[in-house]
Every structure is written in structure tokens, then in C-alpha cells.
Amino acid sequence: MTVEILADREVRAALDRLIDVARSDTGQSARVANFLLAWWNGDEWGHFPISDLFGVDRPIAADMATIFAFIGQYPGAIYPNAFDYRDAMADLVEQWRAP
């Protein structure tokens, strides 16, 4: 993976905003956390129901679309770890998936 791809400002900004939303405690936060955790490891942390898009504001849906388009345009797998977000994702697991 090239540095240019991983340094994409638009993608990184969208991911930053989504993580910030997921860290809060609202219905939108839960939906964003579902999206991010499904991207990180859907088999372990759950999948993202597409109907979750109905419950987020347009700017949040646009950020999700940015991430979705980004991961869909490259062969192979790109995960949040590529952006050095492993710790942030682990925090979301603790917040949203801990028993």
C-alpha cells in the first residue's frame, strides 16, 4: 500500500469524524460503531446492517460513504490499522461490545 493512499486527507478526516461520533453515546454513535467495527472485523464484532444508514445524519452518512468508496477501490484489504487506528478501534470494542 502506498503512502499516498494511506495519507488521503479526505479519507482520514472522515475516519476521524466517525471515530469521534462512535466514541459518544447516542443512537447515531451505535450505528457508526457498528460500521467501523464491521469494517475492522465483522466476523468477530458484528456486521453493519445497511438500514443503520437510515438513523444517521447526512454528514455522517457521507463520511461512511467516503470510507466505503475508499475501501472498495483498492484490491486486497485495507483496515483501520492502516491509518494507525488500532487503539481507537480497540476502545470502540471495549465501549460497544464488552459484556
Rank of each mutant, 00 (worst) to 15 (best):
F35I: 05
R23L: 05
T2Y: 07
Y79C: 12
D16W: 08
G46N: 00
R9E: 14
A65D: 03
V3C: 11
D43R: 12
Y79P: 01
R97C: 09
A22G: 01
D52L: 02
G55H: 10
E10T: 07
G76Y: 03
T26Y: 01
N41L: 13
D8R: 13
D43K: 06
W45Q: 09
N81D: 15
T26I: 06
A69G: 07
M1G: 15
N34Y: 10
V11Q: 09
Q28M: 12
I50E: 14
W96Y: 06
N81W: 09
D25R: 15
A77K: 15
P99S: 13
R9L: 04
A98E: 15
D25Q: 10
V3G: 10
I71F: 05
A38M: 04
E94G: 10
I67G: 06
R23A: 02
S24N: 06
A13G: 05
L36S: 08
L53W: 04
V3F: 04
F83W: 15
A65E: 03
A88Y: 05
G72C: 03
I78T: 15
D25A: 11
L6K: 03
W40K: 14
D87I: 10
Q28G: 14
Q95E: 01
L92I: 03
A88M: 01
D16T: 05
A14D: 02
D57S: 14
Y79V: 13
A14N: 00
D43E: 13
G55D: 08
W40M: 14
F35G: 13
Y85T: 09
P49C: 00
V3Q: 13
I78G: 09
R9K: 14
A61H: 04
D52N: 15
Q95W: 01
V93G: 00
V32D: 06
V56Q: 03
M1Q: 14
Q73G: 12
A65K: 09
V11A: 07
E10V: 10
F70G: 02
Y74Q: 13
D63A: 04
R31Q: 12
R86H: 03
A62V: 00
F48I: 02
L36I: 13
D52K: 00
F83Q: 11
P49F: 07
F70C: 06
A13P: 02
Y85H: 14
E4G: 02
D63Q: 01
H47R: 06
N41K: 15
